[in-house]
Simulated scan of single mutants.
Amino acid sequence: MTTVLVVDDQFLIRAGLVGLLRAAPGIEVVGEAGDGEEAVERAAETTPDVILMDIRMPGISGVTATERILAAAGERAPRVLILTTFDLDEYVYTALRAGASGFLLKDAGPERLIAAVHAVAGGDTLFAPSVTRRLIEAYAPVRPAPGPGRPAPAELAALTAREVEVLRLIAKGLSNPEIADRLFISEATVKTHLNRTMAKLGLGSRAQAVVLAYETGLVTPRRG
């Protein structure tokens, strides 16, 4: 059973989300909050598996609430799924950078919402890789990518060559099966490389790993 905390400052939207999730098999809504401050408190009380977090709220924003929740949670950190009106939103980019697992547009249908919750709970932190990549490319600072034969960025020095390559392909939007096929390794080995990469770099989500790949210059945003 996946436990969920729903956070949105608009009562009707929050009530609609709660109603949809309560009717879905395998999901239990353990709480709801109307602002960022309450979200931090309720997350500590209920320790949910997934938090649906509105990005723009009065007072403490969804970004700040996400940062506080993840910092306080330690190893039992929930997966934060950001709710937003606009996919290309710098607030969403900042939330992914802070460790949110992905984002979902508020006009997504019920099936997509439920699928997103299950996907995020299962560790699929890039629910919409192509859209997430466009978002990151829009806001990530531009740094020169290392050319052929050049070492990876200094921030990634702790990684092996294969871990760097897996991170590069993840940042380009490839799925685990696609990476396995590209590198002629098993999907389980891809997951092992990713888990080791995240542990070495202190990352909490796959989306956060993608952000880091762009910010270090391992992958260069395509702009213009």
Score class of each variant (00 low, 15 high):
Ile136Tyr: 01
Val80Ile: 15
Arg196Asp: 09
Val211Asn: 01
Leu113Gly: 06
Ala33Trp: 04
Gly202Val: 12
Glu163Thr: 05
Ala95Val: 07
Val117Ser: 04
Gly36Pro: 00
Arg168Phe: 09
Pro141Ala: 12
Pro48Asp: 08
Val211Ile: 11
Thr160Ser: 14
Pro148Leu: 15
Leu83Arg: 02
Gly224Thr: 11
Gly217Val: 12
Asn195Tyr: 03
His193Ala: 11
Ala71Cys: 08
Gly74Met: 12
Pro58Gln: 12
Val117Cys: 10
Gly123Lys: 07
Gly19Pro: 03
Leu194Thr: 13
Tyr139Pro: 00
Gly102Arg: 04
Lys106Arg: 13
Ala128Phe: 10
Gln208Tyr: 03
Gln10His: 11
Pro153Gln: 11
Leu135Thr: 10
Leu12Lys: 07
Leu183Thr: 04
Ala121Trp: 02
Ser186Val: 12
Ile185Asp: 00
Ile55Lys: 04
Leu126Glu: 08
Pro78Trp: 12
Arg97Trp: 07
Phe103Gln: 07
Thr84His: 02
Leu159Lys: 06
Ala171Phe: 09
Ala161Cys: 08
Glu37Arg: 11
Ala128Val: 14
Thr2Tyr: 04
Gly123Glu: 08
Pro221Asn: 04
Pro48Ala: 14
Arg97Phe: 04
Ala116Trp: 04
Ser186Lys: 09
Phe184Val: 15
Thr2Glu: 08
Pro25Cys: 13
Ala116Cys: 05
Leu169Val: 13
Thr66Phe: 07
Asp49Ser: 01
Gly31Leu: 10
Thr46Ser: 10
Gly59Asp: 12
Ala209Met: 07
Leu17Arg: 03
Arg143Val: 13
Asp35His: 12
